[in-house]
Amino acid sequence: MTPPAALTVYYDGACPLCSAEIRTYRRSRGAERLAFVDVSGDDAPATLGPDLSREAARARFHVRDDQGRLASGASGFIRLWRELPGWGWLATLASLPGMPILAEAAYRGFLPLRPHLARLFSRFSGTSCDTACRPPKA
């Protein structure tokens, strides 16, 4: 029997920027203990638990730990970095007093830019840009 993943990482595989970042994490030491779930495909479930819809998972980064606790945005990244040995230094830095608040503010500032950056990234990387490259609904 396979032990449960230490962390489940939900990501928008239709976003070339997001996919590139996830590929980096997947190549990291310790990534074999994590489950990576692409929520962009038509075959992705509409809900990813009682507290996470597919739409919410595409709009914002989320992770779920092996206890079922959900973290999103900057706190989700901190949880991910904490699980990957080569990224622990970043988790430590982002967890210093006051840093989680600043990291979340930076992440929220990035979200409206994501469609534009994804489009730009797709042009230079030669990847396609699906719905992730459209501006968010107001």
Rank of each mutant, 00 (worst) to 15 (best):
E21P: 01
I101L: 10
A44K: 15
S19P: 05
A94S: 06
L70F: 00
L117G: 11
L113D: 01
Q67V: 08
L48P: 14
P3S: 15
A35W: 05
A6Q: 09
L93Q: 14
D43K: 00
C15V: 07
R114D: 08
L34D: 02
R134H: 11
R123I: 12
A118W: 01
C129Q: 08
S128I: 00
D42H: 09
P136G: 06
A105T: 04
T2H: 08
P3F: 00
P85M: 09
R33T: 08
R60T: 11
R114T: 14
V63S: 12
S53R: 00
L96N: 14
A118L: 05
S40F: 00
F61D: 12
A94F: 04
Q67W: 05
I22C: 03
P3V: 08
P112S: 07
A35G: 11
C133M: 07
Y11S: 10
A91V: 12
M99N: 15
A118R: 09
R58L: 10
L80K: 10
T127A: 10
M99H: 11
L70T: 13
R23N: 13
P45S: 14
D43Y: 01
T24W: 08
L48H: 12
S40P: 02
T131V: 12
S95C: 05
V39I: 07
R27P: 01
L84W: 02
A105S: 09
A118K: 09
H62W: 09
L93C: 14
I101V: 03
S19A: 15
Y11N: 12
G76H: 01
R134P: 05
C18S: 14
G41Q: 14
R58E: 08
A35Y: 07
Y11A: 09
T2V: 09
E32Y: 02
M1Y: 00
I101H: 07
P50S: 14
A20H: 06
L70I: 12
E55G: 10
C133W: 03
R26P: 04
R108E: 02
A6Y: 02
L52R: 08
A31Y: 03
V63Q: 11
A56W: 00
R23Y: 03
A138S: 08
C15Y: 01
G68Q: 09
G13S: 09
